[in-house]
């Protein structure tokens, strides 16, 4: 698309864009470039120590990094689809004609309005083996329960569970809004054509929800990498890094280990992952989405 604007209008347009661009540059683009620069030219807390690949070499040798990376990818790969499917199911459920659906909507939405730190503090006590809710419930069935956060085979799963609980309600709201925007005529036409519920869901509802799904997908992926507040409360990345996620590891390096250089390298890795995801989502999936 080519815009043929008169010159004075172009200047006007740039003037209007300028404040936002300036803010973006100051707080997003310049720090990003600085981080990239730092990752090649600093060591520990010292800046400008000359060009070096040491920080990247350390990355390759760092077992913890590889574990953290795999944790992060698993974390995203599980929490994103599960919370989205749950969100969709809940939205379809509360969108139907059932009694007390506004109460139900509120119930589903509540986790979303609580701050992550608060949620984590509540769930910390849910998960605690001796006094926690989950093991008490399992106890009624004669099960001795689990050490949810203390068992390295279980702890990442426990984090995922809480994240899904928190995120699904949030995404449900988007799906619910989208569902209410779909004309009833479509469903009536489909019903007359003898389309089963499943066919209607698969061939009409889901395709019409695709723009929402894309939006939710991007947000869910970003959140999966961005949200680590709960780690500070629940596990601090333990036991033995079983729940350590990339952003938390960056925090640890920058503020606990005083290693800004290595934190920059990790930040570059995180940024690269996010860029790849964004390109994939906008480039590949977008083409298959129908916008009304």
């Amino acid at each position: 698309m080519k815009l043929n604007m008169p010159r004075h209008q172009q200047i006007y347009a740039w003037l209007l864009l300028f404040p936002a661009l300036a803010l973006l540059a100051a707080f997003t683009h310049i720090p990003m470039i600085k981080t990239l620069w730092r990752s090649f030219t600093s060591s520990g807390m010292q800046n400008n120590t000359g060009f070096t690949l040491d920080n990247y070499r350390y990355l390759l040798e760092d077992d913890v990094f590889w574990q953290v990376l795999s944790n992060s990818l698993w974390y995203a790969a599980v929490t994103v689809p599960v919370s989205m499917i749950l969100a969709l199911a809940m939205a379809l459920w509360v969108n139907g004609k059932i009694r007390g659906r506004s109460a139900l909507r509120l119930a589903y939405f509540t986790p979303t309005i609580l701050p992550m730190i608060t949620v984590a503090n509540i769930w910390l006590f849910f998960y605690t083996p001796e006094i926690g809710l989950f093991n008490n419930i399992l106890g009624w069935f004669g099960h001795s329960g689990y050490n949810w956060l203390g068992d390295p085979d279980l702890s990442l799963f426990s984090l995922m569970l809480m994240t899904i609980w928190k995120e699904a309600g949030f995404f449900m709201i988007f799906y619910l809004a989208a569902l209410q925007g779909i004309s009833r005529d479509f469903y009536q036409a489909a019903a007359i054509e003898g389309s089963s519920r499943w066919t209607t869901l698969r061939r009409i509802t889901l395709p019409l929800l695709m723009p929402t799904t894309l939006f939710v997908l991007i947000n869910a992926f970003l959140n999966a990498f961005k949200l680590v507040d709960h780690l500070f409360i629940l596990t601090k990345g333990g036991p033995n890094n079983a729940t350590n996620l990339l952003l938390y590891y960056i925090y640890e390096n920058a503020f606990s280990f005083f290693d800004a250089a290595y934190a920059s390298v990790l930040t570059v890795v995180l940024l690269s992952i996010l860029v790849v995801l964004a390109v994939f989502q906008f480039g590949v999936i977008e083409r298959r989405v129908h916008y009304r």
Partner: peptide, 19 residues
């Protein structure tokens, strides 16, 4: 208990007489 024991909830465990 086997596995790790949470720093944050231990006091509560003690106050609720679980240990």
């Amino acid at each position: 208990p086997e596995g790790t024991i949470q720093w944050g909830t231990l006091r509560q465990n003690f106050l609720e007489q679980k240990t």
